[in-house]
């Protein structure tokens, strides 16, 4: 596959979920450009060049994948901050969560989420779902201007 990978910011506190998700993304070789953060606070640190991300290279990720239930700052809050910031609001943000709680769905769509994906319990469905998600947003979708694109030799 000759593609131009773009950066994914992936906020997820559970290591097992991180591993499963990265396994799925790796099916299309997208896992290498995923920045994994364990909570919403660190996701915001990344987006705002704070803390240990103070000196990271400029540019927004092509996709933000957010778990909802995370320590300190949850995924909904990160979504709110992204969508209310002129610099960040164009970044496609996708909620990737365990539940289809209606209040979470409503809140996410109100805030302008770009997609809301419920993690399937079945492994194959999970792998397929995340894989297609990655394929669509990273390969098929044209990201907004200002997105970091990394050209890799594969």
């Amino acid at each position: 596959m000759n593609i131009s990978p773009k950066r994914i910011l992936f906020a997820e506190d559970n290591e097992n979920d991180v591993e499963l998700t990265l396994t799925a993304l790796n099916e299309y070789h997208l896992a290498n450009e995923v920045i994994v953060v364990p909570d919403g606070e660190e996701a915001l640190d990344y987006l705002y060049y704070r803390g240990k991300y103070q000196s990271r290279e400029k540019g927004n990720p092509a996709l933000v994948l957010l778990d909802i239930k995370m320590p300190k700052v949850d995924g909904i809050e990160v979504l709110r901050r992204i969508k209310s910031d002129q610099q960040l609001k164009m970044i496609p943000a996708v909620i990737l969560t365990s539940s289809r709680e209606e209040r979470d769905l409503i809140e996410s769509y109100k805030l302008g989420v770009n997609a809301y994906v419920v993690k399937p319990v079945d492994f194959h469905e999970f792998i397929n779902g995340v894989k297609e998600l990655g394929l669509f947003w990273i390969v098929i979708n044209e990201p907004p201007p200002g997105t970091v694109a990394i050209t890799k030799n594969r």
Binding site: N16, S99, K119, D122, F126
Partner: peptide, 12 residues
């Protein structure tokens, strides 16, 4: 819906 599903998904 949130927390009890996660371990099942992980085991699977």
């Amino acid at each position: 819906s949130h927390d009890l599903r996660a371990p099942i998904r992980h085991i699977a």
